[in-house]
C-alpha cells in the first residue's frame, strides 16, 4: 500500500524487532479458533473485501475530515473573528446565524449522502461476503 512507500510515523513502530503479540491468553489458540482466524485473514485479503473497505473508507475519511474542519472553522471564527461573523447578510440574519443554520443543513445532507453511498456501494456486497465468511467458518 502507498502508506509504506514514504516515511510514515504511523508505521515507524513496525521497523523495530518485537516479540510476537500474545492474544488473550498465554497459551496458543485452540485449533478451531486458529482455523477461524485463518478464514478472517483470507477474507480480509480477498478482492471482494478490499473493495468494500475502500468503498467505505474513500467516502468516510474525506467526509469526516471535511465536516470536522468546517465545524471547527465555524467555532474558531466565532471565537477569534467575531467582527466578521457580526456582518448582516439577510434581514435579521448575520453571518454567524447563516453559517450556524448551514451546519444544520450540512449535517442533514451528509447523513443522506452517507446512507446513499452505503446502500448503493457496499450493503449488498457486504451481506454476500457475510454469508460467505460464515459458511467458511462453519
Amino acid at each position: 500500500m502507498a502508506q509504506q512507500e514514504r516515511i510514515d510515523w504511523w508505521a515507524a513502530a513496525a521497523s523495530r524487532p518485537r516479540v510476537v503479540a500474545q492474544r488473550r491468553t498465554a497459551e496458543p489458540a485452540p485449533p478451531e479458533e486458529r482455523a477461524g482466524r485463518e478464514v478472517y485473514r483470507s477474507v480480509q485479503e480477498s478482492d471482494a473485501f478490499q473493495e468494500i473497505r475502500s468503498g467505505y473508507r474513500s467516502f468516510v475519511f474525506p467526509a469526516s475530515a471535511g465536516f470536522l474542519a468546517w465545524y471547527l472553522l465555524f467555532v474558531a471564527a466565532q471565537a477569534f473573528a467575531p467582527e466578521l461573523m457580526r456582518q448582516q447578510v439577510a434581514g435579521p440574519l448575520n453571518l454567524a446565524w447563516l453559517l450556524g443554520l448551514g451546519q444544520f443543513a450540512s449535517t442533514f445532507l451528509l447523513t443522506w449522502l452517507y446512507a446513499r453511498n452505503a446502500r448503493t456501494k457496499r450493503d449488498r456486497a457486504a451481506l454476500e461476503l457475510r454469508w460467505d465468511t460464515q459458511d467458511q467458518l462453519r
Binding site: 504511523w10 513502530a13 503479540a21 492474544r23 482466524r37 468494500i52 473497505r53 457475510r130 460467505d132
Partner: peptide, 29 residues
C-alpha cells in the same frame, strides 16, 4: 495511544485486526 503503540515491544495482533475488520464491515460472526 500513538506513543504507547510506538513504544510497545509487542507487535499488533494482525489476526485479531483481520477478524475485527471483516466482522465490522460485513457483520460476519
Amino acid at each position: 495511544g500513538w506513543l504507547g503503540t510506538v513504544l510497545d515491544r509487542e507487535t499488533a495482533d494482525e489476526d485479531g485486526f483481520a477478524e475485527l475488520e471483516v466482522r465490522a464491515l460485513t457483520g460476519a460472526g
